[in-house]
Amino acid sequence: MADEQNPEGSAAPPPAPKPAAPKPAPAAHAAPPKPPAVMVTTPWESDITQLLKDRFGAEITEFSTYLAQNFLVAKPETVIPILETLKLELDFDYLVDVTAVDYPKRAERFDVVYILYSYARNERMRVKTMIPDGYSPATAVTVHLAANWLEREVFDMFGIQFAGHPNMRRILLPEEWQGYPLRKDYGILQQDEGWVRENLGIESGQ
């Protein structure tokens, strides 16, 4: 149910908690305040954001902090230049993780998340971008070699093809496997029955 509410709504200006429906008079016994349906972030400002703002301007749509963790949201085409700038000029030289989150009901279906760490600053940040199904974001292998297997795993699990990746094949599942298990429309019991029958010689893996 909560899937429908777009848990990731923070990129757009957060909608008012109750849209302009006929306003009920504030009840005397208000129910305990409900947790808000969007991520409650605070703006993030530092020398990093200043430099990135100067460099990329409107390409970066959001600088935020949630639970004292900083992240930025950028347009997909600029992610690689941002990673490059972060690595070369701001010392974010360790790509911790690349992963994705699926929001099937959103026009831009996937979040691709890059988690970075800087040894020199002892600081962590995330770079996020939103892409529609079928879009091929550029690979980060040109900036961080660590992205190689991490992006292959994202492809394996979500079916996001990274353009320019040296070896864009499945990594954990068998190469002939059909479907992308971590998409939300892939059921927990679902599997590639054909593959299982053919290769394992059993009717079903369940």
Partner: peptide
Amino acid sequence: KPPVGEAYVSIEAPKGELGYFIVSDNS
């Protein structure tokens, strides 16, 4: 039921950095 949000938390496991990136939708 954590509030809507996401967090990356990591620890020094015997083998290196073990991290969890969790997105919550308040369910």
